[in-house]
C-alpha cells in the first residue's frame, strides 16, 4: 500500500519489516516499516505527533535499549549487519551513528571538554591530536570562530543556538557515518534555526543524515528525501520535491495540505 521509492544510489541504512513495541504496550508503535536511507543525503521524517517518527529515529542508535522492556522485530541493516541483533555492540554502534536532540545538551564541563568527550571515550589521550580534532569539529560545525578564545569556559554560558552547534561538533568529532537529528531546532529562535539548517546541508558531504521535524517547511528546505509517517506506518517515501508537489498517497496529500496534523 505504502509508496516507497527505490533508491538508486548507495544506502547508508536499510530498514526492513521493522516493528517496535514499547514496554507493556499491546500493539507495536511501528508497524512493518520498510525504508531505505540514502548515503550522503538528507532524509526527513515528517508526520503528526505520535506517528512514530521519533521512535523510528531512536531505533537507529538503539536508544530504546536504555529503558528495559522495549522490543524490536525485523531488520535494520547497517554496514552489512542487522543492528537489531541482541549481540550488537551498542557502544561501537553509537560512535558510528550519532544523535542530536530536541534541546541543546551541553554537558556540565568546558567547551573543549564537551567536544573532546567522545574522543576521550575512544581512548584518545594525545593532547595535540585532541586539540586538532576538536578544532576541526568546531570548524565543521561553524562555531570555531565564536568559541576559539574561550575553549576553557563552561559550555552552559553559550547561547541556545551556539550550544546546539556545539552538540553537533561533539557528535561529528568522532567521525560517525550517520547523524540522527531529533527536531534539532524546536527550542531555537528563527535565526539560530537558519544557521543549523545551513549546517545540516553542509554536513551531508561527510555523513548521511536523518532528521525528524515537525515543520514541513524545514523538511522541504533541507532534505533530499522525505518520509511521511502516520499511526506507526511509513505511508510514503519519495524525493522531497516530488513528495511535496505530487504526493502519491492520499493521506500524504491531506497532511501536507494541512487537512490534519
Amino acid at each position: 500500500m505504502a509508496s516507497i521509492i527505490d533508491i538508486k544510489t548507495e544506502c547508508a541504512l536499510h530498514v526492513r519489516d521493522f516493528e517496535f513495541t514499547y514496554k507493556g504496550a499491546t500493539a507495536p508503535s511501528l508497524k512493518k516499516v520498510t525504508m531505505p536511507i540514502a548515503k550522503h543525503s538528507i532524509t526527513a521524517l515528517i508526520g503528526p505527533s505520535g506517528c512514530g517518527k521519533t521512535t523510528l529515529l531512536r531505533s537507529f542508535n538503539r536508544m530504546h535499549d536504555l529503558y528495559p522492556g522495549n522490543t524490536y522485530a525485523g531488520e535494520i541493516s547497517f554496514e552489512g549487519r542487522n543492528i537489531l541483533d541482541p549481540k550488537e555492540d551498542l557502544i561501537h554502534l553509537r560512535t558510528k551513528i550519532g544523535m542530536i536532540f530536541q534541546k541543546p545538551t551541553a554537558f556540565p564541563m568546558s567547551i573543549f571538554d564537551n567536544v573532546a568527550y567522545g574522543l576521550r571515550l575512544q581512548g584518545i589521550k594525545n593532547k595535540t591530536e585532541l586539540e586538532g580534532r576538536v578544532e576541526k569539529a568546531l570548524e565543521d560545525a561553524a562555531i570555531w570562530k565564536e568559541v576559539k578564545d574561550r575553549l576553557k569556559h563552561d559550555a552552559n554560558g553559550l547561547s541556545g543556538g551556539q550550544q546546539q552547534r556545539l552538540c553537533i561538533a561533539r557528535a561529528i568529532a568522532v567521525e560517525p557515518e550517520v547523524l540522527l537529528f531529533d527536531e534539532p531546532t524546536s527550542a531555537l529562535d528563527p535565526i539560530s534555526t537558519q544557521g543549523i539548517e545551513r549546517l545540516v546541508i553542509e554536513l551531508k558531504e561527510k555523513v548521511s543524515i536523518i532528521i525528524v521535524t515537525h515543520n514541513m517547511q524545514q523538511a522541504a528546505r533541507v532534505s533530499d528525501y522525505t518520509g511521511f509517517m502516520y499511526l506507526g506506518e511509513l505511508i510514503e517515501l519519495g524525493e522531497t520535491e516530488n513528495l511535496f508537489v505530487t504526493p502519491k498517497e492520499k493521506l500524504t496529500q491531506e497532511y501536507i495540505t494541512g487537512k490534519f496534523g
Binding site: 542508535n61 536508544m63 551498542l90 553509537r94 536532540f101 554537558f107 575512544q122 552538540c167 561533539r170 557528535a171
Partner: peptide, 20 residues
C-alpha cells in the same frame, strides 16, 4: 536528554554517571 546525549556518544552507564 542529557544522559541520552552521553549514551549517544558511546558512553557506558558508569561514564554517564561519573561524567554527566
Amino acid at each position: 536528554i542529557l544522559k541520552e546525549s552521553a549514551y549517544a556518544l558511546g558512553g557506558t552507564q558508569w561514564d554517564v554517571i561519573k561524567d554527566v
